[in-house]
Design a protein around this nucleic acid. Structure first.
Lengths: 155, 155
DNA sequence: GAGGGATAGTTGATCTATCATCTATAGTAG
DNA sequence: CTACTATAGATGATAGATCAACTATCCCTC
């Protein structure tokens, strides 16, 4: 029972504020995405990562890395998305253990339909309320914390 | 198909950076909490909210409001926590539809055991890497965004 | 070229979250 | 007092996330 250093007011304001903000903003984004498309927020992030690639195909493990997901989560999720026709899996020649995940035409259609509304919502709920200086400050803070966690911030 | 204003570099850096940071930090916090206690991160937040109250008892709908959870999520979660002996439900005299959620002695013990490690982790993963100015900047930004969402920031 | 550990991915069990629905009580207008 | 609507909460079905195995391939060393 050594003495614990609890959060002081400044720390609590930053930490709790950030947590609460993320909870509310992400919740609202997910709700809007679900209302305006057939994609969940996780579906959306998968499709964004795929369509950012030249051919719309990525190795599973890379996708895990980009999304920060565990491989099992990705595997289950991709299976569900595959069943809905949004993505497909393809064998990998170079590494025969491996698998590619590929966007289908349907998947492309869905995300292209959903993206404008989502971006609009991100603006409306978050970006729009902050000055350029605040955006930079937030980004700097996030990058510092991520670097300390040894996460590659360059996407 | 009107033209969409996508995120510029500054916006993307702030938004994606923040999202990624939250994902990684929260993930790591959850992992550590699970490793060092028998509480999940949601369990922890429920118990924090309860023990912050004078008697350790809160009406369910207030708890929903504080946590930003839907009532159904809270109901299910409290049921599970009740089964584990961490909380109890009590009838409400003033409003007979209502229910109180109360921390049990066991619940109190658990959170008192878990809290120091959790606070240490929050420091180590987040607070410690930022200057006081950065903490204030982040808090200001979060409060601005929350106010726009009409969320009461004063806890 | 035969072990041996590391890596890629899948699977099933379990836990957690969300959605729609349902019951019961409150509050309010006529 | 009755009817209407709103609110508090619980529930069951489903979707999503996590954990612990498990298989298959790769890569390295001897």
């Amino acid at each position: 029972m050594t003495s614990v250093r609890w959060l002081d007011e400044r720390e609590a304001r930053a930490w709790r504020g950030l947590q609460l903000m993320q909870l509310r903003v992400d919740g609202e984004l997910a709700r809007r995405l679900a209302a305006e498309s057939s994609l969940s927020y996780p579906d959306y992030t998968v499709l964004v990562a795929l369509t950012a690639q030249p051919e719309g195909r990525v190795r599973s493990f890379e996708l895990c890395h980009v999304l920060g997901w565990e491989k099992s989560r990705l595997s289950h999720h991709v299976k569900r998305m595959e069943a809905r026709g949004l993505v497909a899996r393809e064998a990998c020649d170079a590494d025969r253990r491996g698998a590619y995940v590929v966007v289908t035409d349907d998947g492309r259609r869905e995300i292209e339909a959903a993206a404008p509304g989502h971006v609009r919502a991100v603006r409306e709920l978050f970006l729009e309320h902050l000055t350029e200086e605040q955006l930079d400050a937030v980004a700097d803070a996030a990058e510092t914390v991520l670097r300390a966690l040894d996460v590659d911030c360059s996407r």
